[in-house]
């Protein structure tokens, strides 16, 4: 007989919605990893910190605009403003990082940009920790409470907003990559930088554009994270950064739709997947093991399908 799950339907639907929520954030961040990897074949370790900076910038904007005193329809404008400020901050940081820390190393040995990136990541993380005396900041609690329900599914407004706006951002990005000249240039550089430059693509400019697009997504993710989890701190970029990279690998690094799908798969694996594991006899994984789940998933994927779960099998291995 099919073993019955011990927990209620609403429990599982809650886990599902939670998975989609965190998955949205992973997906947004993963896009930056995967696009930079696509054009530079490099892990941008500082991307988690770009996300963190966006979150802090959004926080600053909200506080300046009135913080917890905001009410009524102004809130929508304030959040929009915070998102724009966060995107601007993340984008500027990312452009500066690319110019100062990565571009001079474009032709250096493979290890050099990687070490430089980890340096940037450490620098930014501890700079913010120092400026905040390693204390957390709390996003204004302004988002309207309440929830919608459909059948067993119940979703809070903030979750709905988070999922909807990240899907919208990803759709926008996808359209840019697929439909515009800029997108064609990015795809050409990702395929083969030498050929692209022969065909008249400005490779340097295209790489900057890639950093800008990825950082913009991370900035949005930063504000969404803050609105949802409320607590932000200087070290907040580290774990989501690794997770988002895992998501990018899950979906096949370099692939944009793959990164989005990978984000959601990972989000669901951490919530629904963990609870499913707990249904097994003798298994009891507390919430603190969710990072371990993501990591185990990463290593398992690397063993069995280094090209990602969605990619076709590659013919080459060199």
């Amino acid at each position: 007989m099919h073993p019955a799950l011990t927990l209620s339907v609403s429990f599982w639907s809650d886990q599902f919605v939670n998975g989609l929520t965190t998955g949205s954030i992973y997906a947004l961040i993963a896009l930056g990893y995967t696009m930079v990897y696509g054009v530079l074949k490099m892990i941008n370790f500082a991307h988690g910190e770009v996300f963190m900076l966006g979150s802090f910038a959004g926080y600053g904007a909200l506080v300046v605009m009135g913080g917890n005193d905001l009410s009524g329809p102004v809130i929508a404008l304030a959040i929009l403003g915070a998102i724009i400020v966060a995107m601007a901050a993340s984008v500027s940081a990312s452009v500066v990082i690319e110019r100062l820390a990565y571009r001079p190393l474009r032709n250096a040995p493979r290890l050099a940009p990687l070490i430089s990136a980890i340096g940037v990541s450490i620098f930014l993380q501890y700079l913010v920790l120092e400026q905040t005396s390693a204390r957390a900041k709390f996003y204004p609690d302004i988002f309207p409470r309440g929830s919608l329900s459909a059948g067993p599914f119940e979703i809070t407004y903030i979750q709905l907003f988070l999922i909807a706006s990240s899907v919208a951002m990803m759709a926008l990005l996808y359209a840019i990559i697929q439909r515009t000249r800029l997108g064609r240039a990015i795809r050409a550089v990702a395929e083969n930088p030498t050929n692209a430059s022969l065909m008249g693509v400005d490779v340097n400019r295209t790489i900057v554009v890639v950093f800008i697009l990825g950082a913009a997504m991370a900035g949005v993710a930063g504000v969404l994270y803050g609105l949802f989890f409320q607590t932000i701190r200087g070290s907040m970029g580290f774990i989501p950064g690794i997770k988002a990279f895992t998501a990018a690998v899950l979906g096949g690094i370099g692939s944009i739709p793959g990164a989005m799908a990978g984000g959601y798969v990972l989000g669901l694996a951490e919530t629904v997947g963990r609870e499913l594991l707990n249904e097994l006899p003798g298994v009891s994984l507390g919430n603190q093991w969710r990072d371990v789940i993501a990591f185990t998933l990463l290593v398992t994927i690397l063993i069995f399908r280094p090209t990602g779960i969605f990619a076709q099998r590659s013919t080459t291995r060199a």
């Binding site: 100062l100 820390a101 001079p104 190393l105 250096a108 040995p109 050099a112 940009p113 070490i115 430089s116 980890i118 340096g119 940037v120 990541s121 450490i122 620098f123 930014l124 993380q125 501890y126 700079l127 920790l129 120092e130 390693a134």
Partner: peptide, 20 residues
């Protein structure tokens, strides 16, 4: 304390760019 890591991070970048 944490401050030293700000310096380390900056040094890692500087060493890579200026004196690998």
């Amino acid at each position: 304390d944490d401050t030293r890591f700000i310096i380390f991070g900056a040094l890692l970048v500087l060493v890579m760019v200026l004196r690998p």
